[in-house]
Design a binder for these strands. Structure first.
Lengths: 225, 225
DNA sequence: ATCAAAGTATGACAAATATCATATTTTAAA
DNA sequence: TTTAAAATATGATATTTGTCATACTTTGAT
């Protein structure tokens, strides 16, 4: 069992507020999992008995719409806790979490987290600030969804992906989403997404090499979005 | 100065967790305001030095989009606190609050609220649960915005308005939004909103008498949404 | 290595929605 | 009360986006 104290993601997480003792306690009760790309961490509606801390890899947090499409609400990356909202509201999961890459996550039981939550004011404030940040982002996304065109949203998402997850050595966006997932992020039909990517490829704003996407003209993208 | 202890909205609010002593303290530091219909309580970007507790009336919480349209994120009603998120994140307001009816609101300075927040665990949990509820709703709205048609969203909003704010004696929806505001809630152009209302009026799903809207066939509305 | 399945791509068309123009009605200010 | 401004309504049209069909390409399992 690895020690939370030495975990690299600790510093990027709400967990950085925990003291040594609490970190030891957490290390003793946590369970580590390896999740393969495409596998689910938890599903919408499921009862979560704790939170998951992302140690490595990226996942999507999505919600199924009435028409059967998967809308991606946000992406989760190392350091983030999944299931915080469900824990506080004492409700089942509102979103599904699915690995976009091979992942390592640690499960920490609810009891423990709630204990830290009550003991440690810095920790609870960190968690709350995260949730408040999510709320702000969600509100902003809502405005985008309602008022921007699909093209604008696509440009926005491409910039977001590069800025948040970085580039490979060859300059392509590190995170690779399928066209369907990309469509799920911007809230459109897969074909529309593909079509717009093709168009941006033709106009040299981006370059497409199979699954790889290169942002060639960021200023133009900014302008579009 | 009226006493918070005797305020009717107290029981519907996070504030119900405060003890007598805290309620007295709150009554002593709060400021009451009367806000006329159409007036602003605070604006997006403004620094809030506390929270507003809605005593009476309904307001819209909206955000300006790039194209100059006002997207309504949610409606606030008696008992709700405005500005909680900004207080916790220690950021300026993300949304503007505007009265849809004449309102009475009480302003409570940040210091006081934060003090209660730290002293009283039930109160802080109530506030957090509210914010978590807002987040869940925002995520659900995002899916709707992305995946439902304007007509579906309009039907959904009409049902929501009646169920959340009730009916007048004549059976019309109590809350009266302008067509522009209604369009702002569902995220569409005012003309499109008017057109769909006319259509629903023709098909007898709703009835329109000037600003008054009657839901004539709720089942049909449910089916549409 | 082969093959079926999944993912990507593109065209043709239909449906939904926005935009612009303009008429009518309602509201509020002088 | 009158009158200008704002809100509501509707038509005509353009644009955006979704859907269906089909072809091509990549991927992964046997």
């Amino acid at each position: 069992m690895s020690k939370c104290e030495q975990c690299i993601v600790r510093q990027f997480s709400s967990i950085k507020a925990l003291n040594k003792e609490q970190l030891v306690q957490m290390a003793n009760c946590k369970t580590s999992y390896t999740i393969k790309k495409g596998e689910s961490i938890f599903e919408e509606g499921e009862t979560l008995n704790g939170v998951y801390c992302i140690k490595d890899g990226v996942c999507k947090l999505s919600k199924l719409s009435q028409n059967g499409k998967d809308q991606i609400i946000k992406l989760g990356k190392p350091g983030e806790l999944l299931g915080q909202r469900s824990m506080i509201s004492d409700e089942s999961a509102n979103l599904s979490a699915t690995a976009l890459e091979d992942m390592e996550v640690c499960f920490v039981p609810k009891n423990e987290i709630l204990q830290f939550f009550n003991q440690n004011n810095d920790f609870s404030m960190n968690v709350m600030r995260t949730i408040c940040g999510d709320l702000k982002e969600a509100d902003e996304h809502m405005v985008d969804m309602a008022q921007k065109t699909v093209k604008q949203r696509l440009a926005e998402v491409l910039i977001y992906l590069e800025e948040s997850f970085g580039k490979n050595e060859d300059g392509s966006i590190r995170i690779q989403l399928s066209r369907e997932e990309l469509a799920g992020m911007i809230g459109t039909a897969t074909e529309s997404c593909i079509r717009l990517l093709s168009e941006m490829n033709k106009t040299k704003v981006i370059e497409i090499q199979g699954k790889k996407i290169f942002l060639k003209d960021k200023k133009a993208l900014q302008k579009i979005s």
